[in-house]
Design a protein around this nucleic acid. Sequence first.
DNA 1: TCGATTTTGTTCTTGGCTTCACAAACTCGT
DNA 2: ACGAGTTTGTGAAGCCAAGAACAAAATCGA
Lengths: 226, 226
Amino acid sequence: MTLLRTSANSAAQRIPDATVARLPLYLRALVSLADLGITTCASQELAERAGVNPAKLRKDLSQLGSYGTRGVGYDVEYLRYQIAREIGQTQDWNVAIVGAGNLGEALSNYGGFTTRGIRIAALVDVDPVRVGQHVGSLTVSGFDDLESVVASNEVSIAIIATPAAAAQVVADRLVACGITSILNFAPTLISVPKNVDVRKVDLAIELQILAYHEQRKSLAETVVGP
Amino acid sequence: MTLLRTSANSAAQRIPDATVARLPLYLRALVSLADLGITTCASQELAERAGVNPAKLRKDLSQLGSYGTRGVGYDVEYLRYQIAREIGQTQDWNVAIVGAGNLGEALSNYGGFTTRGIRIAALVDVDPVRVGQHVGSLTVSGFDDLESVVASNEVSIAIIATPAAAAQVVADRLVACGITSILNFAPTLISVPKNVDVRKVDLAIELQILAYHEQRKSLAETVVGP
DNA sequence: TCGATTTTGTTCTTGGCTTCACAAACTCGT
DNA sequence: ACGAGTTTGTGAAGCCAAGAACAAAATCGA
């Protein structure tokens, strides 16, 4: 039993995590270039728009294959398609949001998803009062119906937007439904089987990190003097 | 002109970024231990609750100083205080949110901030219709009044929760107000002077990264067979 | 056709972070 | 008082990523 790779993906057996995290950035830059009618672009220009070092950009792209032309640069449309294919943006991904509080509601109304292959397919909540209410074009589903909601909408990615106390229970149920990709906004650690990917967005921690640096700045000022 | 350090901070001239990002995690774990009435804790236990490797935890803590006791572990209350002091959680940090859309509103109602030394002090929007409206205990201020809002509330950290198109303009105004720490939710690169810290939370990219891994999983299944 | 110029793809070096492994230091029971 | 058992703090090794630097490959003008 041999592991086959598509020819287009020949260069890279496995793309580094750091690179994967930047590919959507490049894609975004390419889309804006295309919108400006620019058809060709050097790594210098593209890197600037993505906010990274040109060498890093070229190294990242070389992980996918050799899509540039020396002396010329990259074809915007072609590279855009290649990256989109690599990160799976040629298809739409259905996402379910669990927790229809302020955050869940904000996420389901967030405009930035649709153009990036992300479709918010369902919004789920435990609160019976919330169930049946309309949020944008969605109707809130009950947590008890999670299985059927996931199945009928072909959901493959879930967002946890509940309070911390509920996060683990929700995660367990999601895993039981066959979900293997979770974005967790609850400020707590959730444990899942190792085949499940969890990414965490912790709003309080982001601010705490900024506060730390802010404190350092004002401390430095005090010590060094005016 | 000598750079002085407080005695408690003697061990570390500069704490690695990776460590700083984890300190709030440890702090959270310590708080929950304290709530359970646990007064002493080994690195093994604490690391598990924070979701990290015990060795990493010990090395992180050793950056702050030598706060443990060999053969015993860490005193929960003492360590908690030391970390809180290090990351500046002994004082409250006033935060202004720019952009009173769905996301800005959700953030200003988010409960997880207050217990972590973060106080949402102001909510600002350009839309004249929005100005004056109440969101939770806050009243939406006008973007034109940004300077006075920042000054009167002693705001030191700002959150950009506007559409991408507005982000750079907002960032420039914030910098002009003297803000040196920004949390950017807009899906775009903002450029700021190098003394300003910017952290970025990009919701679409988080989902795109999950989609990439999800695609890989289903691809692997197809190639390897059932 | 050929040299000059441009720009990619890649090699190599450097630095930071993670993890292991163990000595140092503490407690406890006898 | 002392040996057995625990647990920290840290030195060393390995890994991954960032950036510099350069050879390879393309275009363009004469």
